[in-house]
Amino acid sequence: MPIIKTEALTHVYSKGSPFESVALENINIEIAQGEFVGLIGHTGSGKSTFVQHLNGLLLPTNGRVLMDGADINSSKKLRHEIRFKVGLVFQYPEYQLFEETVYKDISFGPRNMKLSKQEIDERVREAAGFVGVPESLFEKSPLEISGGQKRRVAIAGVIAMRPDVLILDEPTAGLDPEGCESILNNISDYRRATGATIILVSHSMEDIAKISERLIVFDGGHIVMDDSPMEVFSQADRLRSIGLDVPVVTDIATRLRELSIYVPECCYTVSQLRDAILSLKKGGSSC
């Protein structure tokens, strides 16, 4: 059984007013336990609206959202509980920090779950470990640490709930390349350690290419592509026509092919392209 399934999910903002706009239309999707899904689409394509349905923050105008086969909006209680199972990290999550200390802020989610003190402590330390927040920061105010650290603390605040599904909306926006890299690694580590399902929303094709196994492309409230990154990125023209792009590496590979250097088409990360070029040098072919 898929962990998340949507059936004819439709969302209309301000229905019945002159500002009415259809944000999602008839979305049918299944996400399996443990998958790493990348969501892409340009601004206003409906991806943020979509992820807010997955933990019951937005109610579908039409259609259903199922988790483990149960409609998450069937009762108020279930909708509250689902938030602990589906952890959603918003864009710029550092602006939600409010507690006096980093430790207290990370423990906000677990405290809302009404866990025992010991369990909370365990989860906070574990979550901080996943995202690389050192214990020396625990007693500091979240307002006096650096921007990158704030982001980590905010992500830890969601991870501390040990969600089965972790959704991250642009987790690397506004970070330096090193920060991006390490946060993406943290997410991969979390998945490896817990077997959680990850849904990553991003504008950065490089980020998405690097770690996701399946790509869902949104445009105008519809899903226009749902395939492996290799398949999606091989349709560069189609992506460009909906305002997206392919990773720079894919572009380079295409140019190389135009110059009769036959690297395989499946290159969308730096390491793949590097290996492909190296094997060309040796006279073999990869992929």
Partner: peptide
């Protein structure tokens, strides 16, 4: 708008 965003973010962490 900001208040709405923060409300949602805290709700996502189980705030009631």
């Amino acid at each position: 708008e900001e208040a709405d965003k923060i409300t949602n973010a805290q709700k996502a962490r189980g705030a009631d």
